[in-house]
C-alpha cells in the first residue's frame, strides 16, 4: 500500500492508473521486500517524485524513463545531426592530424629554434624567450618533448580556430544588442557545463578514433573568453574617439578596422590569452577521448597509480601553461598603446 494511493482515488483516476497494470520494472527494494515477504515501509510523507507516484499509479512514468527518453531522443536525432555535423567538422580532423604530423615530423633541432623565434617575435622580450627555450629543453631532457609537442600542436589548432570564429562572433555581438542577449546565455552554459559533460554527446556523435571529437570539445570550451572579451572590448572603445571617427566621415568598415579593433585589441588579446589557457586545461581532460599529449601521461598516472609519471607530466603541463601565458601576455602589453612610456 503506497502513500499516494488515496490521492489518485480522490481524483477519480484509479481506472486510468490501473489501465497500465503493474508490469513496470520493480526497484531493488521492492524485489527484496517481495523475497522476504515483508511490505516495504515507506517514509511517513514521501516526496511526490515520479517513482513514488508510480508506486500508486502505474500510468505515471518512472524517473528512469526520463533518462531513457533523453537517450532515445538523442539517438533518434543522431543520424540527422551526424549527417550535417560530420562534413562540416571534417576539416578540423584534417587540421589536427596535419598539425600533429607536422610537429612530429619536423626534427627538434629545427622545431625548437622556430618556437623560440615565434616567442621572440610575439613578445619582443629576451627574458620570456630565454624562459621558453629553457622550458622546452627541460621537457626534452626528461623525454617529454614529443608529448609536449603533441599538446602544443592541438592547442595551436584549437586556439587558432577559436580566434577565427570567436572574434567575428564577438564583433557581431558588439554591434547588436539583440544578438548579445541571445548569445550570452549560450556562453554562460558553455562556461559552466562541467568539462566532462562536453564529452558525453560528442562520444555519441563521432567515433572516438576521430581527432575532431576532442577538437570540438576543446574549441567549445575555449572559445568563450575570446568571444566575450571581443564584444566587451569593442563596446568599451572610447565614445569620443568613435564620435571623432564619425565626424571625419569614416564608414562602418573603416571604423571597425582603423578604430574599434585596434582600440579593442588589448581586450581581445586578454581573451586570446584566456582561450589558450582554457584549451590547455581541456586538452588534458580530452585525453580521456584519445587526445594525444601530456594528458595521456597524466591519465596513465591516475589509472596505474604511477605517481612519478603523472607528476612529471603535470609539471610539463604547468611549464607549457607558463610559456603560453607569458608569451601571450608579453604580446598583449606590446600592443597596448594607451600606456606608452614617456
Amino acid at each position: 500500500m503506497a502513500f499516494y494511493d488515496g490521492l489518485f482515488k480522490v481524483l477519480g483516476l484509479s481506472d486510468w492508473c490501473g489501465a497500465g497494470a503493474s508490469n513496470a520494472p520493480m526497484s531493488m527494494a521492492d524485489l527484496l521486500a517481495q523475497n522476504t515477504g515483508e511490505e516495504t515501509k515507506g517514509e511517513f510523507f514521501p516526496f511526490p517524485s515520479l517513482d513514488n507516484l508510480n508506486e500508486s499509479c502505474s500510468g505515471i512514468i518512472q524517473s528512469r524513463d526520463v533518462t531513457k527518453g533523453i537517450e532515445n531522443g538523442f539517438l533518434a536525432a543522431k543520424p540527422a545531426l551526424k549527417s550535417v555535423l560530420d562534413p562540416i567538422t571534417q576539416p578540423l580532423s584534417w587540421l589536427l592530424d596535419g598539425a600533429l604530423w607536422t610537429f612530429a615530423t619536423i626534427p627538434w633541432f629545427i622545431m625548437v629554434p622556430i618556437l623560440v623565434a615565434i616567442s621572440y617575435y610575439a613578445s619582443r622580450s629576451k627574458a620570456v624567450t630565454g624562459f621558453v627555450l629553457f622550458s622546452i629543453l627541460l621537457l626534452g631532457l626528461v623525454d617529454h618533448y614529443d608529448v609536449a609537442m603533441q599538446t602544443l600542436s592541438i592547442i595551436f589548432v584549437c586556439t587558432g580556430i577559436s580566434v577565427l570564429l570567436g572574434v567575428p562572433i564577438g564583433i557581431a555581438m558588439s554591434k547588436s544588442d539583440r544578438l548579445q542577449r541571445s548569445v550570452v546565455p549560450v556562453l554562460d552554459l558553455l562556461q559552466t557545463l562541467p568539462t566532462f559533460v562536453y564529452l558525453i554527446p560528442l562520444i555519441f556523435l563521432f567515433s572516438v578514433t576521430e581527432s575532431k571529437l576532442y577538437g570540438i570539445a576543446i574549441i567549445l570550451y575555449a572559445i568563450v573568453p575570446v568571444v566575450r572579451l571581443t564584444d566587451l572590448g569593442i563596446r568599451l572603445v572610447d565614445k569620443d574617439v568613435i564620435e571623432a571617427a564619425n565626424a571625419f566621415g569614416m564608414n562602418a568598415r573603416q571604423k571597425l578596422v582603423k578604430v574599434e579593433l585596434p582600440l579593442a585589441l588589448p581586450n581581445i588579446m586578454a581573451g586570446i590569452n584566456q582561450t589558450i589557457m582554457m584549451s590547455l586545461a581541456m586538452v588534458v581532460i580530452a585525453s580521456l577521448v584519445s587526445a594525444p599529449g601530456l594528458g595521456v601521461n597524466v591519465l596513465r598516472g591516475i589509472r596505474n597509480l604511477e605517481l612519478g609519471v603523472g607528476i612529471v607530466a603535470g609539471i610539463g603541463i604547468v611549464l607549457l601553461a607558463v610559456i603560453l601565458d607569458r608569451v601571450s601576455k608579453a604580446a598583449l602589453s606590446r600592443v597596448d598603446m594607451t600606456h606608452v612610456k614617456h
Binding site: 572610447d238 569620443d240 574617439v241 564620435e243 571623432a244 564619425n246 565626424a247 571625419f248 566621415g249 569614416m250 564608414n251 582603423k258 578604430v259 585596434p262 582600440l263 585589441l265 600592443v335 598603446m337 594607451t338
Partner: peptide
C-alpha cells in the same frame, strides 16, 4: 552624401582631443 560632407566640408576638434592612441 553625409559622409562626403563630413569628409570634405567640415572638420571637428574635440574637448577630449579624441586622438587615436595607437
Amino acid at each position: 552624401g553625409l559622409r562626403s560632407l563630413r569628409q570634405n566640408k567640415m572638420s571637428m576638434v574635440f574637448q577630449k582631443f579624441a586622438l587615436l592612441p595607437h
